[in-house]
């Protein structure tokens, strides 16, 4: 990039500054008049730039990663089987899952043979990355659109199963329910990976063998080193 031009010598008009000052005043006056007129309009969204929370809420993107919810299938049974994939993949280690077999008589509540007896997401640790949503094999946990998460105590920020199901009900009622987002491979990614792989042409594609001979040699060397 070329070095930016810095103006070193100012003309008389610029160094007096009054002309620039007047131009600036005219600009701010225009903004002022526009906004005064706008502020007399009806409704919460008066000034176009500002979203006056809490009356006026900005539309949220459909893929926004907000408060979690636990999904039910079409017949109303919980999809979560308590496998613990979400807990394993979580970077902040904020999910605790406890798993047990579905007891007799409750098969209409749970879709699988096992369920998560205790499921807790600690919102104070969560970084809202969405890995749990991507990792879940059943698509049971989905990050929804809730962003009003503040609470007075630590307990108010723990998402237990009841709160997760409640979020599902609220999302369903407001029509913002969506299935779990899974990572989509970029078109042509497989071919690109092969083309740029480091193995040169003509080299054998056989895997190197860790034979017993190699292992014995390594042991001998370790024994000599001590």
């Amino acid at each position: 990039m070329a070095k930016p031009e810095v103006q070193k010598n100012y003309s008389l008009k610029d160094s007096i500054y009054l002309v620039e000052l007047l131009k600036g005043l005219v600009l701010t006056w225009k903004h002022f008049i526009f906004n005064i007129g706008a502020s007399f309009r009806k409704g919460p969204h008066t000034i176009p730039t500002t979203w006056q929370y809490p009356e006026d809420r900005r539309p949220i993107s459909p893929i926004f990663r907000g408060e979690h919810m636990m999904m039910l299938d079409e017949t109303g049974r919980e999809l979560c089987v308590g496998c613990g994939m979400c807990a394993k993949v979580c970077p902040a280690k904020c999910i605790t899952v406890d798993n047990s077999k579905v007891p007799e008589g409750q098969e209409d509540r749970y879709a699988g043979k096992t369920y998560s007896k205790n499921f807790n997401i600690d919102l104070l640790r969560c970084i809202f990355c969405g890995f749990c949503e991507e990792a879940c094999p059943k698509g049971a946990i989905v990050l929804g659109q809730g962003y009003e998460l503040a609470a007075y105590t630590h307990e108010g920020c723990q998402l237990g199963k009841d709160r997760l199901l409640e979020n599902y009900k609220k999302a369903k009622a407001s029509g913002t329910l969506k299935p779990a987002l899974k990572p989509v491979p970029v078109a042509g990614a497989a071919q690109k990976a092969e083309a740029t792989s480091a193995v040169p042409e003509g080299a054998s594609k056989a895997k190197p063998e860790v034979t017993k001979k190699v292992l014995k040699k390594a042991e001998k060397k370790a024994g000599e080193g001590e």
């Binding site: 809420r57 962003y147 998460l149 503040a150």
Partner: peptide
């Protein structure tokens, strides 16, 4: 601490909600 706001980062509306709390 009086109010905790989870989020990474919380939306500005989330912070305003905490201020309202």
């Amino acid at each position: 601490v009086d109010v905790y706001v989870p989020g990474c980062p919380p939306r500005p509306e989330g912070l305003l909600f905490a201020l309202l709390k």
